[in-house]
Design a protein around this nucleic acid. Structure first.
Length: 287
DNA sequence: AAGAGGCCCTGATAGC
DNA sequence: TGCTATCAGGGCCTCT
């Protein structure tokens, strides 16, 4: 679910609320996530102070004062909520979904800071928490990931070299975190629409101009989404506050059978499946 | 080694 | 109303 922009929004709100605070207690209500949370997890976190909250790709990173870390991945359905102590049944939501109150089911982890609690909710359990001992272990954990779109390493030389002899479609590469990390299924379709590239095009067939567009639009789409507070596609409740707004700017995602939004184009938006993931594109202007 | 496909899991929605 | 089938923003694993 959450792609880089959404995780960034969560990171920003968490930073404001929990940095420099000490973890008093950790409660695990359900250890079954993508990886089972080990019994020792709570003790490892207890009494540590959050030096900083950072993010890499779609991963949240709690940086502790003793230079250990806690990785948090939201998977497809993970959300993070902040609840104020002593305000029973009244919650402040830290996630981009901005649900007015804490979900009743599937609350897995609760990190207590005294004045505030962090709740992790995840119905599908594809997310995870992982304690990381030190910087070296963190680097190792991320070693298989490609650069973020914002990185100077995500450049023309890197892409052209990567795509040599690659007989796989460009959509799949944008989703492949080994190639570029942080882009997910929504933004992959949006980026390719702006590039005017058909998602089924083999990577090796892309021109230099195409690759330049991919670099440029990957950055701009993600930045714009962050500026809009991310995309809240399942937030049907009309609540005020931190809800994301980028979903209003989708050009093709979930726009099946609608007219192409490009003013000079008379095409329609098609929906196809690539590697079992829904993919939206204009059959006319994305050649 | 690259690429295709399956799988982990629950919930919302569509269609009968 | 109540069943079943399909799909959902991710990533890991196995097989060829």
């Amino acid at each position: 679910m959450p792609e880089l922009p959404e995780v960034e929004i969560v990171k920003q709100s968490l930073s404001k609320k929990i940095e420099q605070k000490k973890i008093k207690k950790v409660i695990i209500k359900n250890r079954n996530l993508r990886f089972k949370i080990p019994i020792k997890f709570e003790k490892l976190l207890q009494n540590k102070t959050i030096k900083k909250v950072t993010r890499f790709s779609k991963y949240l990173i709690l940086n502790f004062d003793d230079d250990s870390f806690c990785l948090i991945h939201l998977g497809m359905s993970g959300t993070i909520h902040l609840t104020k102590k002593n305000v029973l049944n009244k919650f402040t939501n830290a996630s981009f979904y901005n649900s007015p109150e804490l979900p009743k089911k599937h609350n897995h982890v609760e990190i207590q800071f005294g004045d505030i609690n962090v709740i992790y909710n995840d119905p599908r359990r594809f997310g995870f928490f992982k304690f990381i001992e030190n910087k070296q272990a963190l680097i190792k954990r991320f070693s298989h990931l490609g650069p973020e779109p914002f990185s100077k390493n995500f450049n023309l030389k890197y892409i052209l070299n990567y795509f040599i002899n690659k007989k796989k479609d460009i959509k799949s590469f944008l989703l492949d975190q080994k190639f570029v990390s942080g882009i997910g299924n929504i933004y992959a379709s949006e980026i390719l629409f702006l590039c005017e590239i058909n998602p089924k095009t083999y990577a090796m067939k892309l021109s230099i101009k195409d690759c330049k567009k991919i670099i440029s639009y990957s950055k701009s789409v993600l930045n714009k989404a962050i500026a809009k507070g991310g995309s809240s596609i399942r937030d049907f409740k009309n609540t005020e506050g931190q809800s994301g707004n980028f979903q209003k700017e989708f050009k093709v995602y979930q726009k099946k059978n609608l007219d192409c939004p490009r003013s000079k184009c008379t095409g329609r938006i098609n929906k196809i499946f690539i590697s079992n993931r829904s993919t939206f594109f204009c059959n006319t202007c994305q050649k």
